[in-house]
Amino acid sequence: MIYADDSIMRKGFPATAGSKMLENFIAPFTAEVLTRLDEPAERAVLSEFGLSAPGELPSPLLCNDVFGHVRRQAAKQGLCYLRPTYGTVSRYGLIPTACSMDQIGVAAKTPSEAFALLDKIRCGDDCRPPAAPPRRAAVTPPYADVYDSVLHILAYAEISANISRYDGVKFGFRAEGYTDLDSLYTKTRTEGFGLEAKLSAMMGCLVLSREYYEIYYEKALKIRAAVKSALSFDEYDILELPVESHLAVLCGLPSLTVDGVQLAADAGGEAWLRKAVGL
């Protein structure tokens, strides 16, 4: 049995992304990733739009993980979490959270199981098969102290834009007792969103506002670009990172969290990760 987070749509079945806002939503089409599986996936409801820590994870599990909640929970349970290079797995049919970082990954009991599942769902093959054992390094990547803030600023901005579609008009929950269009929007969003979604919507409005755009959002974008351009995989193939590090998510790199460490490779370097764990 393979599980899929409730934000991955399967035609004719509920897809709530863990939110009251979508409690009655029935998916009108099936996510590309699910069409690649040999069997229908079982629904697993984690947390609202992946914004908070999930409970016990089923395994193997397909899910998006922007904030690292799933990665940390997987590590806590002794599972591994494989996050492929950004764009490797289709996001068609994934209810969006933060589009520049959304990426369906795999939580599984072993790296072998995770890579086997990735092989089923990915588009294309590993593009850089390594000839030699990977060189590992535990160096601190550039600007490491600010990844958490950069990730939160960018994610809040994108989440705020993405969840603006939930207004009680086209799909999902609609509050009762509204008097006009504005109160329909406001009552629906106030009653339909949980606290973390409300926080994200408000913080997104803040970092994108005229007062704060340059000092928060634009600066975060520039730091992310600077991190990516300063990051070099010339002297090593695998970067050993703490489980908590957001480097891979920010830069779209593949990473494998296993045995209490997060291994990251250059974009498209899933083959290095396989080699690093003896596969």
């Binding site: 950004y86 803030s149 600023i153 928060y216 975060a220 974008l221 670009a225």
Partner: peptide, 20 residues
Amino acid sequence: GFAVLNDINLPQAGDAAPPV
């Protein structure tokens, strides 16, 4: 927490291109 971004001096004007 976001205030730490003020302490970062980027080497050049910097672009805001996405990483991928």
